[in-house]
């Protein structure tokens, strides 16, 4: 009865804060896909992994995808992520430690919002940027599940590092152990080698044939022998194309680098969290 009452209160609070349109999800799961970009199987797989990481580090790791964040809040994607995180009471431990990746498909906005002492410690500005780099390449290919897997695995590595007292602040290892050299790279090397070898031997062969007919006579142009009679450039028409700029990730706003208690993390917003947002 008490649990139900608390849920009702949370729902009410969220409805108040998400002013424009109510968030239709009854609750925020570890992975919430309101834009339907994931298959059921992918959703389940990602939820299981997010829950596993959250349990392992006692730290909430969430993914929320909506069609347009403006349907829920007035403000920007950072406001959306922050409101979502706190309205639904996400996070673990007493200080609501957690990280959320909020994505809005309409304008391809994303925000990583980390909260709590451990959240801000583990997810430094540099760390969040690296984290974003790891999933943005997938998103740019519309490989949503792949990008979310990278987000979860990289988050796990960052949490592990933070637990060891060495948060990712200057360098992030590739969370997935990949072989340093593989068959594709070997083929590339061979192909380029063949190209260079063929080109070089072709050039050498050409140098063996020097008896060639002349097709030019520039050596025989008389002094002052060039007279230009007509020089006309006539404008015909103009065509204009507009291409969407894929901006570099923008750092979190407000505060100063190294602000708060944690080196390399800029604290911003009213709840003491930190952001990293941009477009994918």
């Amino acid at each position: 009865m008490k649990k139900g009452f608390v849920s009702l209160l949370l729902m009410f609070a969220l409805l108040l804060s998400l002013s424009a349109c109510a968030f239709t999800e009854a609750r925020i799961d570890y992975v919430t896909d309101a834009a339907n970009i994931l298959s059921a199987g992918e959703k389940q797989e990602l939820r299981d992994r997010a829950e596993q990481i959250s349990d392992q580090y006692d730290f909430g790791v969430y993914i929320v995808v909506v069609n347009d964040y403006r349907d829920y809040v007035k403000g920007n994607i950072e406001t959306f992520a922050e409101e979502l995180f706190h309205s639904y009471g996400l996070g673990r431990r007493s200080d609501e430690a957690g990280v959320i990746l909020a994505m809005s498909m309409n304008e391809r906005d994303y925000d990583i919002y980390a909260h709590g002492n451990f959240g801000n410690y583990a997810f430094t500005d540099y760390g969040k940027k690296q984290l974003a780099n790891n999933f943005l390449d997938n998103f740019r290919r519309n490989d949503w599940a792949g990008g979310f897997r990278d987000f979860l695995e990289t988050s796990a590595v960052m949490l592990q590092k933070a637990e060891e007292g060495n948060p990712v602040d200057t360098f992030i290892p590739d969370p997935v152990e990949r072989p340093r050299f593989n068959a594709v790279k070997a083929m590339m090397c061979l192909a380029l080698g063949t190209l260079f070898g063929g080109g070089a031997v072709g050039t050498m062969k050409r140098s063996m044939k020097t008896a060639v007919k002349q097709t030019r006579a520039e050596n025989y142009v008389g002094r002052g022998g060039v007279t230009l009679r007509t020089e006309r450039d006539e404008f015909l028409n103009r065509s204009v194309t507009r291409t969407r700029i894929m901006p570099q990730n923008t750092g979190s706003s407000g505060g100063r680098p190294g602000g708060g208690h944690f080196g390399g993390t800029t604290i911003s917003g009213s709840h003491g969290g930190s952001h990293h947002s941009g477009k994918f």
């Binding site: 006579a217 025989y220 142009v221 008389g222 022998g225 060039v226 007279t227 230009l228 009679r229 007509t230 020089e231 006309r232 450039d233 006539e234 404008f235 015909l236 028409n237 103009r238 065509s239 204009v240 194309t241 507009r242 291409t243 969407r244 700029i245 901006p247």
Partner: peptide, 24 residues
């Protein structure tokens, strides 16, 4: 958020004379 690329098309005409001496 956009890069606007404008392409102007021109019709170009050039004419001239080149004098050659003693092409062997």
């Amino acid at each position: 958020d956009y890069m606007v690329t404008a392409t102007d098309y021109y019709r170009i005409r050039r004419s001239g004379t080149v004098k050659f001496e003693k092409i062997p």
